[in-house]
Amino acid sequence: MAATTVTDAGGVRIITEVIPASDPRVAQLTSSSRPAAPNVSFQVQNFRRAQPKALGTIHILTGIIHICFGIILTASEHRKPSLPVASGVLFWLGLLLLVSGSLLVESEKRDSILLVKTCCVFNAGVILSTLVATLVHATAITRNPPGCERNAMFQLRHEWCFHVEDKLLSNGLDTLLVGFILLEFCVAVAVLAFGYHAIKQHSYTRMVM
């Protein structure tokens, strides 16, 4: 049997009960006294509101588009590559978007604040990369095609330099890619905003605990 002791101190009655080890209530008390595992889902709930799966799908699709355009333009401009092809921006930005998109899709399935931080790091890289890519494409639009620069007064220019439609086509492709880059920039900013809020909330919760 459990031994009960009653103590009065300062108008407060304290009842102490000693439970023997054979009592079945010991197992319940032991399990309830263990610290509960932190609920990570509560911390990443705000990040899930950004629909990371949908944003990751956008990154993946635009990454595939960049790589496909990179392959086509590299094959067609192997003699005189344009600035976007020579810089390789279509390939490294496409690969970065594929990795970032895959992480965002995975974050929809796993409750991991570390995965959220990783997504934020890669999307910060996407933001910087889109700014560089925009500068590259803008420079390609404003400059003459490769081999058509007027460096000398009587320099002979290649035949394709007189084909205005080629320059218009190149400018159209660069403008289209800049549109995709703007979409990628907006997606990365949204991921960073929601991810930062989730990370901040997670840190605050751990401090309180």
Rank of each mutant, 00 (worst) to 15 (best):
93 L>M: 04
44 V>G: 05
10 G>L: 02
48 R>W: 12
139 T>F: 15
201 Q>P: 01
167 K>S: 13
87 S>L: 03
49 R>L: 03
12 V>A: 10
1 M>C: 12
4 T>I: 09
36 A>P: 06
57 T>S: 07
105 V>A: 13
8 D>A: 10
96 L>A: 08
65 I>V: 15
156 L>N: 09
60 I>T: 05
179 G>F: 07
76 S>V: 11
192 L>Q: 03
204 Y>D: 12
69 F>G: 01
170 S>L: 08
51 Q>Y: 13
199 I>R: 13
92 W>T: 01
17 E>T: 14
33 S>Y: 07
95 L>Y: 09
2 A>Y: 00
129 S>N: 02
21 A>V: 00
43 Q>P: 03
21 A>G: 02
186 C>D: 05
89 V>I: 09
208 V>H: 07
148 C>D: 02
56 G>S: 07
134 T>K: 08
191 V>K: 01
62 T>S: 08
112 S>V: 04
43 Q>S: 15
183 L>P: 00
150 R>I: 14
96 L>F: 11
42 F>I: 14
26 V>E: 04
117 K>N: 15
41 S>Q: 11
64 I>T: 06
207 M>G: 08
41 S>Y: 06
191 V>F: 03
121 V>R: 05
60 I>P: 00
108 E>L: 05
69 F>D: 00
164 V>G: 09
120 C>W: 04
19 I>W: 15
71 I>A: 01
154 F>M: 10
49 R>V: 07
32 S>Q: 08
39 N>T: 02
75 A>E: 04
176 L>W: 06
28 Q>S: 10
127 I>K: 01
203 S>H: 12
141 I>H: 04
171 N>W: 03
49 R>D: 10
54 A>G: 10
40 V>M: 12
193 A>E: 02
82 S>Q: 05
162 F>W: 11
79 R>G: 13
92 W>S: 00
103 L>I: 07
143 R>I: 14
3 A>E: 04
202 H>D: 12
166 D>R: 12
31 S>C: 00
75 A>K: 02
178 V>D: 07
90 L>I: 07
180 F>H: 00
51 Q>R: 14
43 Q>H: 12
73 L>Q: 10
70 G>N: 03
134 T>S: 14
5 T>C: 00
116 V>A: 05
51 Q>A: 13
177 L>I: 09
60 I>A: 01
156 L>K: 15
138 A>D: 04
133 A>W: 03
8 D>C: 06
201 Q>C: 13
24 P>Q: 03
12 V>M: 14
89 V>T: 01
196 Y>S: 10
85 V>H: 04
109 K>A: 08
112 S>D: 11
47 F>H: 03
99 V>S: 10
